[in-house]
Design a protein around this nucleic acid. Structure first.
Lengths: 120, 120
DNA sequence: TCGCGGGTTCGACCGATATTGAAGTCCACC
DNA sequence: GGTGGACTTCAATATCGGTCGAACCCGCGA
């Protein structure tokens, strides 16, 4: 049973997640990732940080805000297991599908400017 | 064959589409809707304007930007017919589904931190 | 003719999502 | 125990998607 430690620097997490270090700090400020501080006040992230950020970026593409993503991630325990990630993944995909379905339904419900007499 | 005229004021379009008049002007600036001007320099929109804006708002919910939406709408002719709207609707839903699929695929492709030896 | 409820432009401001730069600190390696 | 690269904070800047207010214009009805 390996204890997942807080060992990654902001730069390492940035490299592993494909975003700028400034974005990693931004995500920490907004609760997408968590960090502890060294004696010298530097951030140290755990293994899940890069993962969280990669997932967050994908979720942003389907219209979720950073706040919404942080809320979903708030349900993750420390050192998330595959089952925890699976649950989060499903929540995100379900939300994306719900929004797409809402788009489709509302589009379908529109009367498309069918002015009576126009097609008659 | 009714010729669709430019008759709606900003306020009318705003009311019909459920957004503020300032937003209608914003959408015009960004190519989501088009307007002609009266002698007195006032905007006049056609019937499709409110429709475009309602659709645009839905599309924003699934992560499309105003620019992307404007590009899709750029394919609409003047006085769009139901078939034109159907094509646009399909393009938007398809894009939303593609983004959701990308999210799901990338989530599925992740190794979920399965560190060798951890589950052993 | 006057009033007034719209419309107009323009620029300031907002919140979200970051990026950049300055000034200073930390720490890993030699 | 240096040195240099990576880290820190804070403020400014940028883009996106709007909103608001000021100051002004336009047309309609009393």
């Amino acid at each position: 049973m390996t204890i997942t430690a807080y060992t990654k620097t902001v730069g390492e997490v940035a490299a592993q997640s494909g975003v700028a270090a400034s974005a990693v700090r931004f995500y920490e400020q907004h609760g997408v990732v968590a960090a502890v501080r060294t004696q010298g006040d530097q951030r140290r992230f755990d293994e899940s940080a890069a993962c969280r950020i990669r997932v967050a970026r994908m979720a942003q593409r389907v219209g979720l805000t950073v706040r919404e993503i942080a809320e979903v991630f708030a349900t993750l325990p420390r050192d998330p297991q595959p089952a925890d990630w699976a649950r989060v993944a499903e929540a995100l995909v379900t939300e994306a599908e719900a929004r797409t379905a809402a788009l489709r339904d509302q589009l379908a419900a529109m009367r498309w400017g069918a002015r009576p007499g126009d097609l008659a």
